[in-house]
């Protein structure tokens, strides 16, 4: 299976070598320098990503330290059982998916918007400062994010409720209203990731050929038209790569953010519990490596299937945009 990770699909130009296998081998031989250039990366992924993969077998064993991964007794799907038994699989899968969709869609929209706006700003000083400040949230430890959220939002001493009270309103019990939390979590996610994420888009905008803008100006294009017909299309490749990477991990969640914002507050779980947090609570303090590996496999398989399905759908609609 070959993957075309250049999002702008190569349409024609380069045709596949028509020759036989020996011809291909010779071509590979000619590119030995390129192979060597890729070698450190290949080695890296071999050692740190592929070599441990067979160890996933642990998910099907009753692991003990003495016999190791491949010597421990095989137990079939027993380590997956609890997922079904807990009766939460559907809720967790749904929440995880919905949050990720929200993160991907809103995250990219906001990042692109911020990148475009930053590009519009003429004052160098203002641009620099604001960009630096937007980066700050990325430096805050996620544990602190939880502390900050609590001090802003809690009922008894929270800054937000203090403000509401001062203006004569009734304080809100934010930590017991599950309905509010999808917004809060998405907001914190955006807060944390926008500065970081918009860098890629900002760099892409800066590398747009300036003659395109000049041409647009000559044609009398409005700011909107310039954005719509020059900037956005040039961001598409970046966007598609980002999407491709997000899709594979769509069943994985940002454990740190969710756990530190919500923690043990079970009154919010209907709308905030994701696979990672739920499994963490179940196996907390037990050295249940097998269970966590089983869950990881479930997430990987789901992500893999989703990527394949999306690709198949895209291919049916427009082959040019298919990923592979």
């Amino acid at each position: 299976m070959a993957i075309q990770l250049d999002a702008r699909r190569v349409r024609s130009g380069e045709s596949r070598p028509a020759g036989d296998g020996r011809d291909r081998l010779r071509r590979i031989g000619h590119s030995k320098t390129l192979i060597i250039m890729c070698l450190p990366a290949i080695l890296f992924f071999l050692v740190f990503a592929y070599a441990p993969l067979p160890g996933s077998w642990i998910a099907f064993t009753n692991f003990n330290y003495h016999d190791g991964i491949f010597g421990s007794p095989f137990v079939g799907l027993r380590n997956f059982e609890f997922l079904a038994k807990s009766g939460q699989l559907w809720k967790l899968t749904r929440n995880t998916l919905l949050y990720n969709v929200a993160f991907i869609v809103l995250g990219n929209i906001v990042q692109i918007a911020v990148a475009i706006m930053l590009n519009e700003i003429r004052s160098k000083y203002f641009k620099k400062v604001s960009q630096a400040v937007m980066f700050l949230p990325y430096f805050i430890s996620v544990v602190l994010v939880g502390v900050i959220a609590f001090n802003l939002l809690n009922y008894d001493t929270g800054a937000l409720n203090a403000l509401i009270e001062r203006t004569g309103g009734d304080p809100i019990k934010i930590y017991s209203q599950a309905g509010l939390w999808p917004f809060i979590i998405v907001l914190f996610h955006l807060w944390q990731s926008t500065g970081y994420g918009s860098i890629v888009y900002f760099a892409a905008i800066l590398s747009i050929d300036s003659t395109l803008f000049e041409a647009a100006a000559i044609d009398g294009a409005s700011a909107w038209q310039r954005t719509r017909y020059v900037i956005l299309p040039s961001l598409k490749p970046t966007f598609i790569i980002l999407l491709l990477f997000s899709l594979g991990g769509i069943m994985r969640g940002n454990f740190g953010l969710f756990w530190n914002l919500v923690g043990n507050n079970a009154t919010l779980y209907d709308t905030t519990d994701i696979i990672e947090t739920s499994v963490y609570r179940m196996i907390i303090s037990q050295n249940n490596f097998t269970t966590s590996t089983a869950v990881g496999l479930y997430q990987s398989l789901f992500g893999f299937a989703l990527v394949m399905l999306c690709n198949w759908l895209v291919r049916r609609v427009n082959e040019d945009y298919a990923l592979f």
């Binding site: 027993r78 380590n79 038994k85 079970a266 196996i283």
Partner: peptide, 13 residues
């Protein structure tokens, strides 16, 4: 074990 893990899930909820 799997039952206990599932029970832990219900408790934590």
């Amino acid at each position: 074990d799997p039952t206990l893990t599932a029970i832990g899930g219900v408790f934590s909820e």
